Simulated scan of single mutants.
Amino acid sequence: MRITAAQRIQNENRIRAAMDRLLRGEIPPGGGCDIKTLALAAGVDRTAFYGSRPYAHLRTEFEHRLAQLQQAGEVLDPKVAQIERLKTEIEKLKKSLAQANSTIQELTDTRNQALSRIAAQHEEIQRLRTGHTTDINITRLPSARQKIIGPC
């Protein structure tokens, strides 16, 4: 069923009034600052805002005004503000996690190097202790437990 010119003007006025309310931040609960909420608030079918439908120019106007407000730094929709805040927090956490992973990798590498050095030193000590017991030129020193007896 086609609408009359008077009905169309009346619908456009309702849409513009709803548009002004949304852009002032008067967003109904469960809604957002979007075409779906605009159509619902104006009592018009949402599909009338798309393609070559009668109110497509009002959708373009609404999106343009919304973009201008967003460029000016105004955030009308609390959901959008929360999403932006969470995106910023996620980026911060990703950077923190990357830094922590980098630090963990550096510490793991340092620990592995230290363990390798300790193992090599232990092997060298074992080799020195057992390898030269038969050499005549090497004198074994007494351990700290043995008492050294010498001239007094």
Rank of each mutant, 00 (worst) to 15 (best):
Q105W: 00
V75P: 03
R85H: 11
P28Q: 02
Q126T: 07
Q10P: 00
I3W: 14
R145L: 09
C33Y: 10
D77R: 08
E84Q: 09
K95V: 12
I27D: 02
P78N: 05
R117L: 09
A119T: 13
C152N: 13
V44N: 04
F49C: 09
R53P: 07
A81R: 14
K147Q: 13
E123R: 11
R2H: 12
T133P: 01
S52G: 13
A81D: 11
K79V: 13
I138V: 03
I83Q: 15
I125N: 09
K95Y: 08
D109F: 00
G30Y: 08
T110R: 09
L115D: 01
I3Q: 09
R145C: 11
T134A: 07
A6E: 14
L76I: 09
E89C: 08
R127Y: 13
L66N: 02
N11A: 14
R65C: 02
D109P: 00
A5N: 15
T4F: 10
L66G: 00
Q71M: 14
G51S: 12
I149Y: 08
Y55P: 02
K87E: 14
I15G: 00
R129Q: 00
A18M: 04
G30E: 13
K87T: 02
N13E: 11
H132K: 15
E63T: 00
T88R: 14
E123A: 03
Q70I: 07
Q99T: 09
L66I: 03
Q126G: 08
R53F: 03
S116E: 12
R85Q: 12
H122E: 02
T110E: 05
T133R: 06
L115Q: 03
G43Y: 06
E106G: 00
H57Q: 10
I138N: 01
V80E: 11
N11K: 04
A18Y: 06
F49Q: 04
I138R: 03
H57V: 10
A67S: 11
R140K: 14
L141A: 13
L115C: 05
L23N: 15
L86M: 09
T133F: 06
D77S: 09
S96N: 08
Q99S: 01
I35S: 02
T133E: 05
L23Y: 06
T60R: 09
R127L: 07
G32Q: 03
F49I: 04
K94N: 03
I15Y: 01
E63V: 00
A6P: 06
D45L: 10
A48E: 12
D34W: 02
L115K: 01
F62L: 01
I83K: 12
K95D: 10
E89D: 14
N112T: 13
C33Q: 07
R14W: 11
E61W: 10
